[in-house]
């Protein structure tokens, strides 16, 4: 039976171990956040374009957008990563590891955001366009000043969902050997033959998602001033 001092000793030992893990895991967090931030910044504008493509008056553009969404949503992100990094060089297109990740993630998330935004745009009343038209606004002004702000508000909960999923999807970049958070934890787990690093990684993910959840909540509140 362990005495109290033994128990305290064990606790201190565990804390010291976790502390020693932090630098490696933090460098994993940096990769995770990098993938996260780039994907978000690239995929949301791209998603708006995809949505506009889906709603285009031109049939060919509608079809292309539809095909794109089907291919991207219909295949695993892991497969897309492998295809872009290993497959494209076969036809002479070579991207670095990180660029491959950026391309695969942005294209993938743009498809999901595209569908969310399409739903949001379609839900805006026809009358809003007509009112803008009668006020002399151009199509661009109408979209940017009247439609988009309303779409952002309406789609924010669905977008928030995808943002949280993205935090966790970043772990897929292991397939290209990038040491994001989960892989960094796995390296430590295999080296030290213990589960502790994975638990710590889990806590890191929870902290990240908590922060983003809070930010998104505040955005929702900011947009709650109407309706």
């Amino acid at each position: 039976m362990g005495t109290i001092s033994e128990l305290m000793g064990n606790t201190v030992e565990l804390l010291n171990y976790v502390l020693a893990l932090l630098p490696a895991l933090m460098s994993g967090v940096v990769i995770t956040l990098k993938v996260f931030a780039f994907t978000l910044v690239l995929s949301i504008p791209l998603g708006i374009l995809v949505a506009l493509g889906r709603l285009s008056r031109l049939r060919i553009i509608r079809r292309l957008a539809q095909l794109y969404i089907w291919v991207v949503r219909g295949t695993p992100l892991l497969l897309q990563l492998i295809f872009i990094f290993f497959g494209l060089p076969m036809i002479g297109i070579v991207f670095s590891r990180f660029n491959s990740v950026m391309i695969a993630f942005s294209l993938n998330y743009a498809a999901y955001y595209g569908e969310i935004f399409r739903g949001g745009i379609a839900s805006i009343d026809r009358g809003q366009y007509e009112a803008a038209e009668m006020l002399g606004m151009s199509k661009r002004q109408t979209f940017l000043r009247v439609i988009l702000p309303q779409v952002i508000k309406r789609t924010l909960p669905a977008v928030a969902n995808e943002v949280i999923t993205l935090v966790k999807d970043t772990s897929l970049v292991y397939i290209l050997g990038l040491s994001e958070l989960l892989r960094a934890a796995k390296i430590a787990a295999n080296r030290d033959v213990t589960l502790a690093p994975l638990v710590v990684a889990g806590i890191f993910y929870l902290i990240l998602t908590a922060v983003f959840t809070k930010v998104l909540q505040q955005m929702e509140e900011r947009y709650a001033y109407y309706e």
Binding site: K34, A37, Q218
Partner: peptide
């Protein structure tokens, strides 16, 4: 709220640059 978001963006940007610098130039 703005401060929080600003802070977060700054943090992420820093992370990105720190990551770039730290990554081995393979």
């Amino acid at each position: 709220k703005k401060m929080m978001i600003l802070g977060l963006v700054a943090l992420m940007t820093m992370g990105v640059f720190a990551g770039c610098a730290a990554e081995k130039p393979v």
